[in-house]
């Protein structure tokens, strides 16, 4: 970062495919992503082990592009790594494609690349291919990143959103709504301050610790946009089961609750970027929970409910007065409720 002049900006020439493109790749991407599989050739050539691979892609736009607890670079690695991990796949290789707005500071691009490298290392994944395009001023919001990843499926682990069964415990790996709350505060539209950082984290280690504790896990899904509430409705729908939640058991940081109280928002519908929702037989839940609580990103893991055969497709909460109420269906733009 020190060698980068703070007056340098990405220009359209950086995206034209000529000498300046090569310079940008050398100075920013090669400098950070360097590994034996990241070559100058048209495609990475990689060994294939026996067994199956998991394969996924995701595009990332976030405003602001840096926020407490991370930036778009870290987010773009975590998102794809976590999608692979949810299938029980060890993340192996990633590609990344950048669309950068003309005038974006090179120093910021370097910070993003550095965060990607650090997160990829932690997740044990190699960045092996990339692409850079530059769009005119105003055509993109600073920088967009798309990452694609492949992972090696773990023997004996098969998870799917359709596998939840009555009798399963529903586990969430940490307090909910942090990322969404962090972004909301970082945009500073409502002039609220709170000490909240994004939960953005690569979760292959978290998944690994669970599958080492039990192979009998039915569903693992990362709660991203739409939060944990949206995931619960997706699973209830895919598995044709009902879900019962105990509202008092859903972990929410006090600050997140405070912000939600101010704006009339439901924490279960705020985005997470480092939280998994896990469905496993109740008999397996204690071992899974014990393993999770030892991990760096899942110390506050909790059982928040159970799967039932009743009311398929619906998520029902036991409320603080001991009555039952439907969790509202996810939908639409999150709008603060004031008046």
């Amino acid at each position: 970062m020190d060698n980068m002049n703070s007056n340098e900006f990405v220009t359209l020439a950086h995206g034209a495919g000529g000498r300046q493109t090569a310079e940008l790749i050398d100075r920013v991407f090669k400098a950070h992503f360097s590994n034996p599989d990241f070559t100058g050739d048209d495609a990475a050539v990689l060994p294939v082990d026996a067994g199956k691979i998991a394969f996924t892609t995701d595009g990332f736009i976030v405003s602001p592009f840096e926020f407490p607890g991370g930036n778009i670079g870290k987010l773009s690695i975590c998102g794809t790594v976590n999608d692979l991990a949810c299938m029980g796949a060890k993340p192996l290789y990633l590609s990344c494609a950048f669309v950068i707005e003309e005038g974006f500071p090179l120093a910021k691009l370097e910070e993003i690349a550095a965060a990607m490298k650090k997160t990829a290392d932690e997740a044990g994944v190699r960045i092996v291919a990339g692409d850079t395009k530059v769009a005119g001023k105003g055509q993109v919001d600073h920088v967009f990143i798309t990452t694609t990843g492949v992972g090696q499926l773990t023997e004996g682990v098969r998870t799917s959103g359709a596998f939840a069964r009555p009798g399963d415990a529903v586990i969430v790996t940490g307090d909910v709504g942090r990322h969404g709350c962090t972004i909301l505060l970082a945009r500073n539209e409502f002039e609220i301050d709170a000490d909240v950082t994004s939960d953005c984290a690569p979760l292959w280690g978290t998944v690994k610790s669970m599958i080492d504790a039990s192979r009998d896990i039915h569903v693992i899904r990362d709660a991203t946009r739409g939060g944990v509430g949206t995931v619960l409705y997706e699973i209830a729908d895919q598995s044709k089961v009902g879900i019962r939640l105990n509202s008092a058991d859903v972990p929410v940081a006090p600050e997140v609750r405070g912000v939600c109280g101010m704006l009339g928002l439901e924490p279960l519908y705020l985005a997470c970027e480092g939280r998994l929702v896990v469905f496993a037989p109740k008999s397996e839940a204690p071992a899974i929970l014990e393993a999770l609580r030892k991990g760096p990103y899942s110390a506050s893991a909790a059982i928040i409910g159970e799967v039932v055969a009743d009311h398929p497709g619906k998520v029902v909460m036991t409320t603080e007065i001991g009555a039952q109420s439907l969790l509202p269906q996810p939908g639409g733009e999150l709008l603060p409720r004031i008046c």
Binding site: M317, T319, E320, I321, A323, Q324, S325
Partner: peptide
């Protein structure tokens, strides 16, 4: 009232 499920009691 809806969120708490008061109608149900």
């Amino acid at each position: 009232i809806f969120r708490l499920g008061i109608r149900r009691i």
